[in-house]
Structure formats: C-alpha cells, structure tokens
C-alpha cells in the first residue's frame, strides 16, 4: 500500500469560496485532495503540490501614456511571475488596442498569451 510522503493544508484560490484543502502526495507519486467542493479545486490542489501556476494581471503602457490592463490567457508558472512582469513592462502598445487583442503570443514560452482586458478605443 502506498504511504503519504508529503501533506499540506491549502486554501483554494480558484473562486471566492476559498475552500480549505488537504493535499497528500503518496510515495507512488499520486496526489489526493480532500476538502474541495468542485473538480477545479482538485486540479488546483494537485498542481499546487507539483508545479504552482498563477494568472498574471498587470498593465502595459499605451503610446499616449495611458495604461491598459492586461492578463495572461492562462496561468503561468508561479516562479516566472517576475520574469513575465519585466517582459510586460517593456511593451508599449497602440492606443487602438482592443479588449481581447493578443499583445504577446506565448509569453516567455509559457504557452500563455498576453491579452488586453481593456480598451481606450471608444473612450475620450
């Protein structure tokens, strides 16, 4: 029978409910999650024990100096958040950028695109 080798208490960050998870890694490499209320909580618990991922939300400058909100289209490795920030802070985008536009495909090889979550297009 497989034995637990690592156990952690986590707070799920997938939704505002914030379930308290107990995640156990067994010596055969399998991960068990309890305390979750939905399948996404199970996935979160498993990923958090093996390779934590986070969605990055930040801003980029537009050509006229105003800031445009952006996010990654999918979670990126947690340890790459600051590298992603450095890359994103180098970018200046057109003021005609629209919400949903892909600004950087495959940001730093993470597989996630950087997308605009706002727009100044229709605004004064």
């Amino acid at each position: 029978m497989s034995k637990p080798v690592k156990e952690r208490e986590l707070t799920c960050i997938i939704c505002p409910r914030g379930c308290s998870l107990r995640v156990t890694v067994l010596d055969d490499g399998t991960v068990s999650v309890t305390g979750n209320s939905c399948p996404r909580g199970k996935t979160y618990g498993e990923t958090e024990m093996t390779h934590p991922m986070r969605t990055l939300t930040t801003t980029v400058a537009t050509a006229d100096g105003r800031m445009l909100p952006v996010r990654t289209s999918a979670p990126v490795p947690k340890e790459m958040l600051f590298a992603c920030m450095a890359a994103v802070n180098e970018i200046v985008v057109s003021r005609d950028t629209d919400i949903g536009d892909v600004l950087v495909p495959d940001l730093l090889g993470t597989g996630a695109d950087l997308i605009a979550t706002g727009s100044w297009k229709s605004r004064t």
Binding site: L10, T11, C12, I13, I14, C15, P16, G18, S20, R54
Partner: peptide, 12 residues
Amino acid sequence: GLARNIEQCLHD
C-alpha cells in the same frame, strides 16, 4: 479579506 486573497496575494 477572502481566504483566497490571503493565499495568492500574501503567502505567494
């Protein structure tokens, strides 16, 4: 605050 924000904004 929400527990998830303690986790992802402070603990992280």
